[in-house]
Write a protein that binds this DNA or RNA. Structure first.
Lengths: 345, 345
DNA sequence: GGCAATCATGCAACCGGTTGCGTTGTCAAG
DNA sequence: CTTGACAACGCAACCGGTTGCATGATTGCC
């Protein structure tokens, strides 16, 4: 009739079972080193008095914590939760616990979080890091690190290649007759933003379109709404936003200005986080965040087992998801600038 | 010219500074026990060789980990991220790290997570727990525990009282002439669901309305969509859904069935997670998830400091947010049952 | 029947901090 | 000059496990 007030320790199990602490430890970690009968007895006693190995103590001794850290810029941004969910769920299957950190898009904060996590985790996943490259390398030096949507040479990374989808978006707009578009950019430190921006410009150049860039500091609905005015000023007939949140904000802002979508302007988002929930349903670029989360965690686990993995660069492609926010260029809204004749197709 | 390959330990600092390990420890935790000059020297050496106290070792020694756990049923459910964000952000300010767990709406999984977290945290926050009461008590016995949206006597809890808002919704529908409504329920283990269901029934009774209940097992868009058929069969003219996800799914499903909202049926959601993003904009009940997250974490921190806090029951009220998915009962769709005359107002 | 290999288990050091208590040194009061 | 109080710091045990090595007991084999 054991009365386990405080958590039972290995010593108590040892005493009750009449063996040494070492044997108890081995019964849990290396049962084959012990006699079957002994193992059974020890496990039985442990069960009885409700003993369960202390992860902290184990971590201190072995250096392995059984924890991983996941850091994102903003939990509330709907792009991340599915990714987090996927990673956490997979971690769970390998008996890992996951620390979650949200940096609020602030590099300093991100840095602080990583330092705090460093000595309690076996590795970390950095999603859409806003950190300068040298800081990333610094942390990667301390612990196994996997990046998501950030491309740093020599550090394992999984990248959602939105370039493909964005390129499709641009040529789709071109096909609809748009000659002047704006790219509403996201965080300047964001790899995805740079990639999308580059894709827009490159594709637009190929299609001989004019593209103006307006930058939103943070990818939020509100920032998008506020950008609507500036977008109108450009005289563009279509806008590609860094992500769906911004796109949705733009739609709201445009609506307040009395402009209709896609009647007056076409809008395309990115990441497909809102499904078909907006009205009109947002044309956007698909995401692969669930797979990205799984892949990142999977890479990390591989790293734990096999020592180190080389220069992994896992690329996932995307595509345009056509819905209802794009239409042929409205004749009522001319760009007001000389339009180069579009050649080809 | 120190070459700190492996993480420096307290012993190395001690050696370099020419003091005992105890003094180094105290320089960080109890500086006033040491001479000013000594503290300065130790801190200087630590800075030089890049020493930072190991949280795991400290935890083992003191019993305090500096971590908290946060467990939710489903990270991807948009109700939770703002709450998580708020809690994590607040934890951060007190130098706490947060473990995140997602149970996938599964009590067994939730139980497993809590056990895994138990010995590495100072306390936990259980959001919308699906656990039976005795299991909750069991875990609360092991570690300080704060509940969100779950009402268990004697355990600190913060509750978002959606009853008020739901009651407003019902009487709003009554005012619009609806006589027969359906309540599309959520997870049966959910306190919020029981609370909302009770509020619907009570208010409906007061208004002499008939309410049928249909249960969705999980609160997802898909589940809502699939419930649309059953809803139509009831002949009801309005539906109140457990949450916005279900409501949005219902709208999608209704639309597929050729029914319009609010023309044929009125729909009201709960939690206001989608903002005005749906079309038509969803009438719903406000939430307070950010405050709930902050409050929960705050209670936990209080508990750490003051030992134990009594039987806290923090209630936050809500209200109906009128948007565009409710309208007067369509005359074209009679409920097909005898309608009691509504008395009063 | 004696010796070596093998198996099962214990001993004790270690992981990196924290902390109760004892020791040393200093200074002021008696 | 002794004594007492106090400040500053070191000793060593401890937190709860893990693990290299040693030991004693079997067993196999010649």
């Amino acid at each position: 009739m054991p009365i386990p007030r405080a958590k039972p320790t290995i010593s108590q199990v040892a005493e009750v079972a009449g063996v040494s602490r070492a044997s108890v430890s081995r019964a849990f970690t290396n049962p084959h080193m012990l006699g079957e009968a002994t193992v059974a007895r020890i496990l039985g006693v442990a069960e009885d008095i409700g003993y369960v190995p202390n992860r902290t103590a184990r971590a201190l001794s072995t250096g392995r914590t059984g924890n991983v850290a996941l850091v994102v810029p903003d939990i509330a941004n709907p792009f991340f939760p599915p990714l987090i969910q996927a990673a956490q769920s997979l971690a769970d299957k390998s008996d890992f616990c996951v620390f979650l950190g949200s940096s609020g898009e602030d590099p300093a904060q991100e840095d602080k979080l990583l330092s705090r996590f460093a000595d309690q985790v076996d590795g970390m996943i950095l999603v859409s890091s806003r950190l300068p490259e040298d800081r990333i390398r610094h942390h990667a030096d301390a612990r196994p690190l996997v990046l998501v949507n950030r491309d740093v040479n020599g550090i394992p990374r999984v990248l959602i290649d939105s370039g493909v989808g964005v390129a499709q978006a641009v040529s789709h707009l071109a096909d609809l007759g748009h000659r002047r578009i704006v790219y509403l950019g996201g965080p300047s430190q964001s790899w995805s933003n740079r990639q999308r921006s580059a894709a827009v410009h490159k594709s637009a150049r190929a299609a001989e379109m004019v593209v103006e860039t307006i930058n939103a500091l943070v990818p939020t609905h509100e920032a998008g709404r506020q950008a609507a005015g500036a977008i109108r000023e450009t005289g563009a007939t279509a806008v590609i936003a860094f992500d769906d949140l911004l796109a949705q904000g733009v739609m709201a802002g445009l609506s307040e200005l009395g402009l209709s979508v896609p009647g007056d302007l076409s809008v395309v988002g990115c990441d497909d986080v809102l499904g078909a929930a907006t009205y009109p349903a947002l044309t956007t670029v698909s995401n692969r965040s669930v797979e990205a989360g799984e892949q990142a965690l999977s890479l990390l686990l591989d790293h734990f087992r096999s020592g180190a993995l080389g220069d992994v660069r896992f690329l996932m492609d995307t595509h345009l998801v056509l819905r209802a926010t794009t239409a042929a260029r409205s004749l009522g809204r001319q760009a007001g600038v000389a339009q180069p004749v579009r050649k080809g197709a």
